[in-house]
């Protein structure tokens, strides 16, 4: 297991997350995609921490922060999605098309 393996996994994860952000119909699906992307970054941090920086703490602290932030972000996003659902009776991303031009 070298650095590149980890990085490739992370990249794949990132790509998958992005893919679901771009293709999911449901707003929550998009949110999950974003979470995947965040996790990809986390893997990167840990991998770099392990192989490059050789500092036991930094990467892990960063990842902890990321987890916290991701949770907060998810909370806010979910509540907003909820309110959007209430307003439109739908959580389909394509139904949010009132604002344009």
């Amino acid at each position: 297991m070298t650095l590149s393996h980890f990085l490739l996994v992370a990249l794949a994860l990132f790509a998958l997350g992005l893919y679901s952000v771009l293709t999911r119909r449901h707003l929550i699906g998009l949110l999950i995609g974003v979470e995947l992307m965040l996790n990809a970054a986390s893997i990167n941090f840990l991998a770099f921490d392990r192989f490059v920086v050789k500092d036991p703490a930094t990467g892990q602290i960063i990842v902890l922060f990321i987890i916290g932030l991701a949770a907060a972000e998810a909370a806010i996003a979910l509540s907003i999605i909820l309110s959007a659902y209430r307003a439109h009776r739908s959580a389909d991303v394509d139904d949010l098309d009132e604002l344009k031009n």
């Binding site: 992005l18 952000v21 771009l22 293709t23 998009l30 991303v93 394509d94 949010l96 098309d97 009132e98 604002l99 344009k100 031009n101």
Partner: peptide
């Protein structure tokens, strides 16, 4: 130009990416 703002979120993100 204004019509490029199509209202479709995924298009926005896609084009940015």
């Amino acid at each position: 130009t204004a019509r490029m703002q199509s209202g479709r979120l995924q298009l926005y993100i896609g084009s940015a990416v």
